[in-house]
């Protein structure tokens, strides 16, 4: 493992010896990692390597799968999120998530963004400001400010995904997880989302799973490589892509297997 990352000075997320099973099948094996604050951390690896499963542990989305069993420790800002008395709903407010396929609700653009804050009790008169701020942060306001009452489905795929990012930001999380956010988008929309993600790290800690190694190389500060449920290597992105420490990492990123 790469020396620089063994002990992160200011880790926001700390994972220790995480094991996860789906029924009898072990999907994560002894994963330990420290994810630094206000940075972009990318997870790469072949399909089924456990990278998506891993980030879904960080906001406990795996709880929705009945056969899923977890051992180990995941703490965010020093607090064990699998500990007793943890409110999953509160956790997910703190750790937002953007999914593979843009999934706006069948509502207007405005209502999509207002949905979260409204249920979390934001005043009706403050709501408009929250929506505008979220849309601006997602670099979407200038494109759609004249039609925020039209249905979200009238937006293009890339705009829908940025809407979903805005929707996530509207509930003011500290961490945003991206699960292959560009896999359904064209290159230009992808470039816009990548640019956005790089800007967001000022205010959020970003964790992103991607199939696209170039994407990980372009936007992340740190990269983790997963293979068959194990964290093989974690290091500065530049180093992973120029001089990985592990043979299997090199073989994967240079396309010698996959």
């Amino acid at each position: 493992m790469t020396e620089a990352i063994q002990n992160v000075a200011n880790p926001q997320i700390e994972v220790k010896d995480l094991n996860l099973w789906y029924g009898d099948k072990q999907a994560l094996k002894n994963v330990s990692i420290q994810i630094p604050k206000n940075s972009v951390t990318a997870f790469i690896g072949p399909s089924g390597c456990g990278k998506s499963t891993f980030i879904r542990c960080l906001n406990r989305m795996n709880d929705l799968i009945k056969s899923c069993r977890i051992e180990g420790e995941v703490s965010i800002e020093g607090k064990d999120i699998y500990g007793p008395g943890v409110d999953v709903v509160d956790l997910r407010k703190q750790v937002g998530m953007v999914f593979q396929k843009p999934n706006p609700f069948p509502m207007s653009i405005y209502d999509n963004i207002a949905y979260g804050p409204r249920i979390h009790g934001v005043n009706k008169k403050d709501l408009e400001g929250v929506v505008e701020h979220a849309l601006r942060s997602a670099a979407l306001w200038d494109e759609i400010s004249d039609r925020i009452r039209s249905p979200a489905f009238s937006l293009s795929g890339g705009q829908q995904q940025r809407l979903c990012i805005a929707r996530t930001m509207a509930v003011k999380p500290e961490i945003i997880l991206f699960d292959e956010p560009c896999s359904a988008l064209d290159p230009i929309s992808t470039a816009k989302i990548e640019e956005l993600i790089m800007n967001l790290k000022k205010d959020y800690t970003i964790v992103i799973v991607t199939h696209n190694m170039q994407q990980a190389a372009r936007i992340s500060d740190h990269t983790a490589f997963f293979l068959m449920g194990e964290l093989i290597e974690f290091g500065k992105t530049r180093q992973i892509f120029e001089n990985p420490g592990e043979k299997s990492t090199e073989d994967y990123i240079t396309g010698r297997f996959g």
Binding site: L64, F99, T168
Partner: peptide
Amino acid sequence: PPEYREASLALGISKWQTIRHVVLPA
């Protein structure tokens, strides 16, 4: 679509609120 439920839950919305505000209308 299960994506609606996921999206809502990921926003820190409880299950019942998700059903009431997203699943039922849809």
